[in-house]
């Protein structure tokens, strides 16, 4: 447990300090969301309609931005070898890495989304559903993204392949997440949040095994 927490806090510290990318992901999120009204026009009725989808897609892209370094940086400076040699199970290491990424990226993105929702004139019910759905869904983004990051850790241009691998797998999260926002705006009952919760739990449960297997194969000689 001590080594688990040590790894978790180390990764969070690395992410939030200079050059870690957590703050950059937030800035990227805000910048992408700002570009959308410039592209589609300033009609607030239209913007409030697409707010859930836009914020969800932007949040997924922003989370992906910092994912490619999740294992690669440790792989390049050799600390990944030491982490693998430590008594901590590799699956638990994967959980710590995913947790740190979520705490440093997913959670701040969720908080920022409530502020950005104001720019889109999202209703109160819609904003509540958005924040809740991001809170539930971003762990799945970190979990699936970690599989992609672990698979591409030894590839020099891994950051280009990662989105192609990860984005199709994240389609359910985007569908259920933005669907929950739309349903809340229209005042309709919807199972989207439950389905999103199920998807997220499944991803968080299964992905550490895939991540650990991917790290192992990349370190095997």
């Amino acid at each position: 447990m001590t080594s688990f927490l040590a790894l978790l806090f180390r990764d969070i510290r690395l992410a939030v300090r200079a050059g870690g990318g957590a703050a950059l992901a937030l800035a990227f999120f805000a910048a992408v969301v700002t570009l959308v009204p410039l592209g589609v026009g300033a009609d607030l009725r239209l913007l409030s309609r697409i707010a859930g989808g836009v914020l969800w897609v932007a949040a997924v892209l922003a989370a992906l931005l910092s994912l490619d370094r999740l294992f690669q940086a440790d792989y390049e400076d050799g600390s990944l070898d030491l982490i693998v040699l430590s008594p901590l199970q590799l699956e638990a290491t994967a959980v710590a890495k995913i947790g740190a990424h979520w705490l440093a990226t997913g959670l701040p993105l969720t908080a920022l989304s409530a502020l950005l929702a104001v720019l889109f004139d999202l209703s109160q019910a819609g904003t509540g559903a958005l924040v809740l759905s991001l809170l539930i869904g971003t762990p799945a983004v970190s979990a699936i993204g970690a599989i992609g990051a672990a698979l591409t850790l030894s590839i020099r241009r891994g950051g280009l392949i990662l989105p192609l691998i990860v984005l199709p797998l994240l389609a359910p999260a985007v569908i259920f997440g933005s669907g929950a926002v739309l349903a809340a705006q229209d005042g309709l009952a919807s199972g989207a949040l439950y389905l999103l919760t199920a998807f997220s739990l499944l991803c968080v449960l299964l992905s550490p095994f895939a991540v650990a297997a991917s790290v192992r194969l990349n370190l095997a000689t």
Binding site: A171, P172, F176, L195
Partner: peptide, 15 residues
């Protein structure tokens, strides 16, 4: 991973 996820993608898109 894709094979596990494909039925879920299929279901979500149908939904």
């Amino acid at each position: 991973v894709g094979a596990v996820n494909l039925p879920i993608i299929e279901f979500s898109v149908d939904w």
